[in-house]
Amino acid sequence: MLQSVIFYALAAGTIASAAAVAFSRNIVYSTFALLGAFMGVVGIYILLAADFVAMVQLLVYVGGILVLTIFAVMLTQGIGDVTISNRAVGSVPALVTVAIAGAVMLYAIAHTRWHQAALHAAAPTTYGIGNAFLGDYVLPFEVASLVLLAALIGAIVISRHEARE
């Protein structure tokens, strides 16, 4: 019962924030609404007994990606034209496309019998995740570090000012 109340509160907050991201005309408002969406998703993760993933989401999304996005918004917009987050012309075709895609997926959700096992009691997951990362998933784990290194170097190379001789 309590779980239901918490779920609906978190879901309502997340959806409201995501809707603000989608429909706000001001890009700065959208950016700060994104904070609410990410925090709501953190709560959803905790409700799904994924404590480690929730903390990773908090650190990487809220602490990293969101701050980076805010920096980009502030760097690319002058003070005067802060409201120019122009919606594209074709808002109605987008709405139709999204409605069709959503209806198809809703049909699939409603008419599929998903495999469901007995629920585990919520327990700390860091031990198992750590073992899996250094066991079955050690190759993707190492490749991931290469990807992050490449992204780091690539971002520096792309965004720096060209040196003029």
Binding site: T14, I15, A18, V21, A22, I27, G90, V98, A101
Partner: peptide, 20 residues
């Protein structure tokens, strides 16, 4: 819930002209 967030994100991608 995931479906609703996905459709909102898709709508954002389709209607924005701002790259961010």
């Amino acid at each position: 819930l995931s479906l609703i967030i996905f459709t909102l994100g898709m709508f954002t991608v389709l209607t924005r002209r701002n790259a961010i």
